[in-house]
Design a protein around this nucleic acid. Structure first.
Lengths: 242, 242
DNA sequence: CGAGCTTTTGAAGAACGTCAAGAGTTGTGG
DNA sequence: CCACAACTCTTGACGTTCTTCAAAAGCTCG
């Protein structure tokens, strides 16, 4: 079984237990693996993919490009995320997907996903759940951009990254790799690069986070959550029949 | 068959054709109808509904309430929207749903939706699609708040409302009912009430829109789209096998 | 070592929020 | 049918936040 599929199983498994048959079915999916260098747009807006992609390693983001040359990154994805499952139902992309760091990505055929909806209803609901959790994350992002200060947005992003990375085993002693430039952060937070830089400095000066190069170390997660008004409820991190 | 279910069929039917059997299945769903006065929160954050709601008449919105007493409205819903289908997979609400105008709402049991996923895979994919289109709308909203001017946000909101209301037959001669206060608009656009008011006046002064009381009349949709950088692609308004 | 990125700093101006108050509108009860 | 209360919309003044522009400093990779 491909390691990316194992991450997906771990990801889904934090929301409901999967049967042996379901795990076997996921393991039997034919996958195509690709690697992309940093900055590469590997799924284009308006394209009609016949495969959905699952992030194996690295960071990727959904991007909405605007006519005036700027862009908004609307979501950040981590290993184990079934990034482009939305494309399975949407057919035509309304956004693009870019590699924030070097990425290794695994593709699954839509035709195989369709079979899952026909023969494995519970597993299909789990994949559906994966897209609705993405939507819940997107809602939180909307609220952050609409009604939160830059410092809260940045802190919230780190709280969320910390929490999600932990579920796939990519946090140790509060530390995790977070290879993203401040220009990309700016596109995520809806700020200018200059103000993003000042916000990063503000956050550093709280002492709750150490951030050197691409390594982030959260030294006081509890207080960072309070500062950022972060509450993990929306991530649905509990096991329950779905 | 309940009129709200007919609206849903019309809504889904703009994305793929439904078979007679699927329509019959939707028509056979047991529904519970409720009416709510303007301003009422009828699904609470953190609640665990066992029913999903479908908007029949009126406007409703998803709301994320913030600790400091403000809120962000993250989505606006119109008749025919299966507003709380997200709750079917999420189980516990990450946001609340409020009536923007007086609303009539129809509820469907999660247990019946579960049966659809087990016995009607294509219809289930259509419901899944409904939630991923919601997610696409949410992405657009995120981009609006992050990288668009207040005038573009407001214009885009009207373009989207116009387009979506048209698919359920609620626009005639460019006119539609849009019963929302400027305070609620402010919570949607991520602005203060004062600035929202000035933005509404800016939009009126373009002459592209007439907006008196709760009636909006778009006098030049094409130019309003260009002003707002609106492109309906993300609404998935074409029929295609899904 | 040097080119090209990334981060950082300063200064000036535009955009947006807040506060305060007046004008208009709607709904209700006498 | 009118009067009043409560909400909604509008305007002005002022302060803060954030962007833009420009440039320097630091870092990375050939």
């Amino acid at each position: 079984m491909h390691a990316a599929i194992q991450l997906l199983i771990r990801n889904l498994g934090t929301r409901d237990s999967l049967s042996a048959g379901e795990i076997e079915l996921l393991g039997s999916l034919q996958v195509r693996e690709e690697s992309y260098e940093r900055g590469r747009t590997f799924i284009a807006e308006r394209s009609r993919p016949e495969w959905s992609c699952l992030l194996h390693t690295g960071l990727s983001a959904r991007a909405v490009d605007l006519p005036n040359g700027t862009r908004q990154l609307t979501a950040l994805h981590i290993p184990g995320d079934f990034v482009d499952l939305h494309g399975f139902t949407l057919k035509r992309m309304d956004h693009s997907v870019v590699a924030i760091s070097a990425c290794s990505v695994v593709f699954v055929r839509h035709s195989e996903l369709k079979v899952i909806t026909e023969r494995a209803a519970h597993l299909a609901r789990m994949l559906w759940l994966s897209t609705t959790i993405d939507a819940a994350i997107q809602r939180r992002m909307t609220a952050l951009l609409g009604r939160h200060t830059p410092l809260e947005r940045l802190g919230h992003l780190l709280c969320e990254a910390h929490t999600r990375l932990e579920t796939v085993g990519l946090v140790s002693e509060g530390k995790f790799q977070f290879p993203i430039t401040q220009a990309e952060l700016a596109d995520l937070l809806g700020l200018s690069v200059v103000h993003t830089n000042r916000t990063v400095q503000d956050l550093r000066s709280t002492g709750l986070v150490k951030w050197l190069g691409s390594e982030v170390s959260v030294t006081d997660f509890e207080r960072l959550c309070r500062l950022s008004r972060f509450d993990a409820n929306y991530l649905n991190l509990w096991v329950e029949p779905r």
